[in-house]
């Protein structure tokens, strides 16, 4: 087998392979440092962080589903100051690849505040902005459900992010994800991550109550993979900035499929929850699969469909 090239480039940031655990499914990386070789993984998207520490939602926060799970963790996090002063420096000591800070907010000001701090943090390579949060000044509607609000967030964070690439993470709970993607690109986004979880709900029919305490949550897992592939394909055709594909990826074959659809890097989310070793396992499986498919360099297949 000839040497396979797995490395990809995201806005000038080179990843040794395209595999990135998705935000919220891998903690701050540190939690798994003893269980696996983090450095096998191309990049790590850290747990979503807000200005202030948040406890998140009451439990139960998890509901199992066919082909996935619903989560309503509610952005539990220690706040941006702890992220940049403790979590990232600790991870940087042991991890040499791309560190992606995932930023959430409930107002434009909060996004800007957090992104400014993250941009100033030496250990962080890429900013990923989660616009699926409700806008407290906009009637609680998620920023990511309106092209105008998505563009406002993008402009605000680009104004304070310096040289750090900004990826906007899109919500799939919209009528036309392409129009929102284009609005973010036009507002200056350097890249896009898609998709976030699908709003879902499960009911315990014996107890006659929603399973998760918050009633609803984000559905993710292999069941959403075809929808994510479709959205990645539509968005990458319409935009010229790089896309990190996310949604239901659970094996090396899915990574190839997501890249053919248009993704430059591929995030693995829910699958980490049932197999903490899945990211390094996928990295290990890729060269043989590429050989079988006649691929020498992953860059050959990005967006060929």
């Amino acid at each position: 087998m000839v040497n396979k090239n797995l490395s990809v480039s995201l806005c000038g940031c080179t990843l040794p392979n395209p595999i990135v655990p998705a935000s919220g499914t891998f903690g701050f990386g540190l939690e798994l440092a003893d269980a696996l070789d983090l450095n096998k993984i191309g990049g790590i998207s850290l747990k979503g962080t807000t200005r202030d520490a948040r406890f998140g939602n009451p439990t139960p926060r998890i509901a199992e589903c066919t082909g996935g799970l619903i989560n309503s963790v509610g952005l539990q996090n220690p706040g941006i100051d702890v992220l940049v002063e403790e979590k990232v420096p600790a991870l940087r000591k042991i991890y040499h690849n791309a560190i992606i800070a995932n930023i959430s907010g409930f107002s434009i000001e909060e996004y800007a505040h957090c992104c400014e701090k993250a941009a100033a943090c030496e250990g962080i390579d890429i900013l990923e902005v989660n616009i699926s949060c409700p806008n407290v000044h906009g009637g609680g509607l998620a920023f990511g459900t309106s092209a105008e609000a998505a563009a406002q967030v993008t402009k605000a964070v680009k104004a304070v992010s310096g040289k750090k690439p900004v990826f906007i993470k899109l919500s799939p709970n919209v009528t036309d994800i392409v129009s929102i993607a284009k609005a973010c690109e036009d507002a200056g986004a350097d890249g896009l991550t898609l998709v976030n979880t699908f709003l879902g709900m499960r009911i315990d029919i014996a107890r006659r109550k929603p399973i998760v305490a918050n009633r609803m949550g984000g559905f993710s897992g292999p069941a959403i993979f075809p929808i994510a592939v479709r959205m990645v394909n539509q968005v990458s055709k319409a935009c010229s900035i790089p896309v990190m594909g996310c949604g239901g990826v659970s094996r090396a074959e899915d990574v190839i499929e997501m890249m053919m659809a248009g993704a430059t890097a591929v995030q693995v989310g829910a699958e980490n929850l049932r197999n903490p070793m899945v990211c390094p396992e996928i990295v290990d499986a890729l060269p043989e699969l590429m050989d079988r498919l006649g691929i020498n360099d992953l860059n050959e297949i990005i967006g060929i469909i």
Partner: peptide, 22 residues
């Protein structure tokens, strides 16, 4: 006992409030 996601501390699906914080 709590309903868990990952079971190993990185998904934060089973957090409770304690006198020492989450």
């Amino acid at each position: 006992e709590e309903r868990m996601g990952c079971g190993a501390g990185y998904c934060y699906g089973c957090t409770i409030q304690t006198t020492k914080g989450p």
